[in-house]
Design a protein around this nucleic acid. Sequence first.
DNA 1: CATGCCATGTAAGGGGTTACATGATTTT
DNA 2: AAAATCATGTAACCCCTTACATGGCATG
Lengths: 180, 180
Amino acid sequence: MIQNILLGFLNYHSMTGYELKQHIDYSTAHFWHAYHSQIYTTLRQMEKNGLVTSRFVDEEGQPRKRVYTITPAGKAALAAWLDQPMMEMSPLKEELLVRVFFSAQRDPQKVLDELKFQRQLHLKKLDQYRTETRQAMENTDKPDPERDLPFWRATLNLGVRYEQVYVEWLDETIQMLEKL
Amino acid sequence: MIQNILLGFLNYHSMTGYELKQHIDYSTAHFWHAYHSQIYTTLRQMEKNGLVTSRFVDEEGQPRKRVYTITPAGKAALAAWLDQPMMEMSPLKEELLVRVFFSAQRDPQKVLDELKFQRQLHLKKLDQYRTETRQAMENTDKPDPERDLPFWRATLNLGVRYEQVYVEWLDETIQMLEKL
DNA sequence: CATGCCATGTAAGGGGTTACATGATTTT
DNA sequence: AAAATCATGTAACCCCTTACATGGCATG
């Protein structure tokens, strides 16, 4: 998966692993994140497979940079992935729900504390989506923002909706627990 | 993670890997699924680590069964996991959003088809939650349903809310695409 | 002087997925 | 007779996470 994301970004323009990491952090990380270690190793592997090329760029007074560029084979791989529609749903993996599922045997106060803390986290995330993330998206330097922006906004919309229902659900569940 | 789920179920009563798989499919699979291969191998590993014990039960006219039982060490491990509250959010991994993010370069009709198909999947899931899943939960054979049911219902509630906003978001996004 | 940011990597391990494999019983 | 369900396993692989590792520059 991370390979497709890297190809997707490199298809806008060439950049370094570090820049890719930053782009991911401000956009796709909300629905697919990656550690820098994975990004660097995947890029090397992609180069080995002919999907990208790299060259070192040395500028005075700056650390050495390795700039990656997508190849025709890389573009083909990206297009092939996008062409093949998803026929299943992405499975959820929500650890908190596993914990809630088995929480009847826990101290109710500790469950409440945990849910209230999670509520703070999700509220913070919701706020982030509405400020930083939205701004980072709109102030893009990419080639054809008018073409891409509607799709980027769409992904952010689901993120916002998701955090909204998550907070609502936490409120509801906290209330339920307080009645018990 | 799957280890905690297995311990959680075995803490209700002893059962086989096959039964564990079924319980998971009807409950936690909505937020954490597992393949039978992982369940069987994890159980063996847990036995090696003293968290469970197993014995074979042979009944006439039936395949041989291996019944697992939680040990005091297993109960302690489960309690330890539940005691330590989650301090971060579970990261999302939604492949469809990655695809939408990079969909400006795709044939809009293909994107629409994909979203409409996903809409069907999510509607179906929503319906499942409201019928089968809810029934399977309420008609439980577990020791103390009154104690556990509120928590199980809570997890289902988030599942329903999630599928609802997902469908709403798909509708909104489909509409947006049709205008372009 | 210390923290943070820029910048790139390696290595070990864990968890999960896919595929291969078998065999009996029950239902259609 | 075929398909579905019951029932248990192994093996290879892949992806991802965590930790280790380095070094320069800028800012407070």
